[in-house]
Design a binder for these strands. Structure first.
Lengths: 133, 133
DNA sequence: GATTGACCTTCCTATCGTGGTAAGCTTTAA
DNA sequence: TTAAAGCTTACCACGATAGGAAGGTCAATC
């Protein structure tokens, strides 16, 4: 039942590009795939699930290093959920910091933009704000 | 009055690293600096102001390409504020999109994390969410 | 049996903004 | 005079991704 597929099928069914699948193998996030006699990589169902896992973790903004840990936890039945949660919370904090940073940028920039007439006149509070004389 | 300084002073007084100052020159964001006989770069007051301008624009998240445009506008007394404002609003939109993306990540991840006990038990809704069986 | 086209392989390049390092020259201060 | 600090260019690295070139493999069609 463990149907094997080459990298193209693995890519289309997981939503991860073939390029990236090879890259994940190269950097050690994925174990080396088995090969056909001709050297084609082969993936089984469990490996396809791992690719989906990686894609979803990427979509949540986890770095490859974090994903490597998450995958290890996932495959380890002796994991402690404490460690997974800690990783998630640490990433959540990063996300929150980025949001705050972007919101501050937005506020400053919006304030400047609001003051700019945006016509054919050269006077521009945006440039003045950046020049900050 | 137009005191000239070498790159170290230019860096410390503008808050832009010497490395970056050279890089901006290399990619054409800054005009090539004049040089001493020995080949040391020299910066005048106007150029120091430009460095500050760049630093503040970077702090607002503008890309180097956008900053190149902003600098051009700033130095062009025939500019129309319309174009500056358009650039700023376009960047604002990007910022807003990034914020939305991060907020979506946060919501999903926070929901998963809330469901995870975070103890020595292996059961973990975070991993289950990523596995999405 | 031969050709074709889709698929696979490895290897190299680029992105973007920043940091680091090494080898060597110049300036300044002791 | 010598040592330290500062400058120069020319490399390499990051993280995650994409593109391309050159070549091997597979399956279907002529």
């Amino acid at each position: 039942m463990d149907k094997l597929v080459t990298i193209g099928k693995a890519s289309s069914s997981s939503g991860v590009s073939a390029k990236m699948i090879r890259y994940y193998e190269e950097v050690g996030v994925l174990k080396k795939a088995s090969r056909t006699d001709a050297g084609y990589r082969l993936y089984n169902q469990a490996q396809l699930q791992q690719l989906g896992f990686i894609r979803r973790a990427r979509n949540l903004g986890f770095s490859m290093t974090e994903i490597q840990s998450l995958l290890k936890f996932w495959l380890d039945t002796d994991r402690e959920s404490r460690n997974v949660k800690q990783l998630a919370l640490s990433h959540l904090q990063e996300i929150n910091e980025k949001i705050l940073e972007l919101e501050q940028m937005r506020e400053v920039l919006q304030t400047l933009a609001d003051k700019c007439d945006g016509n054919d006149n050269p006077d521009c509070p945006i440039l003045e704000g950046l020049a900050q004389t």
